[in-house]
Computed example of a mutant assay.
Amino acid sequence: MSERYSTEAGEPPRTGIERVRFRLWTAVLRATPVLRVIQAFKRRERLLTVTQAGLGIVWMVAFLLAPLLYILALSFWQRGAGGVVVQEFTLANYEALLLESVNLLGWQIKNVYLLILWQSLKFGFLTTIVTLVLGYVPGYFLGRTESRYRSLLLLLVVLPFWVPLIIRYYAWILVLGNQGMLTTILGWIGLASDGFLYTDLAVITGLVQVLLPFMILPIFNSVSKIDDEYVESAKTMGATPLRAFYEVTLPLSLPGISAGSILVFILAVGSFMAPALLGGPSDLMVANLISRTFGESFDWPLASAMAMVYLVVLFVLITVFNRFVGLEEVFDQ
């Protein structure tokens, strides 16, 4: 047993037969043909690594950078007759979005696009706050519980992903409509209502329901990595369970809160179906406006300028968020 262990561990064998085997095996490994084969495998491994990295870069350039560069170039071109794109440099698209004033229904509005962009950001902020309030407790519970039903509970969190997005939004139409389930229940208790569909509340409700798992899962991941000894040490030092939560658990779960917040915010601001199906004419968001400008007005340069302004605003907000939070620490969790 000890002789076998010493041989496997790389120590010199003790018996004569084992010494012979060891020398033969060493000679084989050091033989020139074998060394060449090993080197070829190493070169092939490097080649495989370089190839994989190259394919990733090509994929990013072909399907991310190239379309973005085309949209950027398109935003500086002009719309011709019948929606034809005229490849002549102009700043008119950005001037129309950022500088022109519009008279809308008798109200002097500074700029419709900026109002819709602000409304999209407002929906994003509200959705993020509501999902954080509703999602922290389930995420905390899943991260701390030792129940044997933990896997089942996690399955219930991700189960909505199995249902197509459009079906979930149409379900909210049945719930929030003037003859919907919520209106009927309110009528039973004597609270008359015309329904909540086509309102800001309907849009935010739909967004919260769809994006809630994106808040719960990062919080769960962050809380599950908290060492129990930290909490027990705080309690040993005289902290109450509530104070131990505020002093230890909550700060250590901030990376999950930050990751969930940024995911929910970006997805909410760029939502298309929620305002299209649950919102009214005044609940337009940037994605809806860009879609209409592309598909109905056939003004591709103006729509491209809208998309670039939207991306710049998001980039600025994420940069500010990174300055105060530090996304490197968030996504290292």
Rank of each mutant, 00 (worst) to 15 (best):
L159H: 08
S271Y: 00
S101W: 11
L250K: 12
W25G: 05
N322P: 06
P275D: 03
Q52A: 08
A259S: 15
Y140C: 09
V312S: 05
Y149N: 10
P67S: 03
I71G: 01
T183Q: 13
L159P: 07
G270P: 00
S233F: 09
I257N: 06
V312E: 06
S147R: 15
W77F: 10
S193Y: 01
L156D: 02
L132C: 08
T199C: 04
V330W: 03
A9P: 07
S271M: 04
P164V: 15
R144L: 15
V264H: 07
E8Q: 12
I219A: 03
K110C: 08
E296G: 00
S147K: 10
M60R: 03
S233H: 02
L55M: 04
I17A: 15
W25Q: 13
E100I: 00
V37G: 10
V50Y: 14
P164E: 06
L267D: 04
Q209C: 05
G238E: 12
G16S: 12
I266Q: 06
L65Y: 08
G256V: 00
L117A: 02
D299M: 05
F272Y: 14
L99H: 06
S258M: 08
G270K: 06
Q39E: 15
T145F: 10
Y310M: 05
N178W: 11
Y70N: 11
V133K: 05
D283H: 11
V61Y: 03
L211W: 01
A202P: 00
A66H: 06
L176S: 12
G190M: 01
P33G: 06
V84P: 02
I173T: 15
L55S: 10
G326W: 09
V102N: 12
D228R: 15
Y230C: 10
G180H: 13
S233A: 15
A81H: 08
L64C: 04
V248L: 07
L97Y: 09
R243D: 12
F125I: 09
E296P: 01
R243P: 01
T51Q: 11
V130C: 06
P67K: 03
G135T: 07
F22H: 13
P164Y: 14
F272L: 03
S291Y: 13
R168F: 04
F214M: 11
L55P: 05
R144M: 08
E3S: 04
S75W: 00
V34N: 13
V210I: 12
A192M: 03
L104E: 12
E3M: 08
P213A: 03
L156S: 14
F141H: 12
M273Q: 10
L47A: 14
Y149D: 11
G206N: 01
T15A: 14
S297H: 01
I38F: 11
A244D: 11
F331N: 13
L134C: 12
T236L: 14
L72F: 09
Q78H: 06
V312K: 07
L242A: 15
R30D: 10
V316Q: 04
W162C: 09
F141M: 14
R148P: 12
F161V: 06
W162H: 07
A192T: 11
F161S: 09
D200M: 08
N178D: 07
I226C: 11
A259I: 04
R46I: 14
G54L: 01
W300H: 02
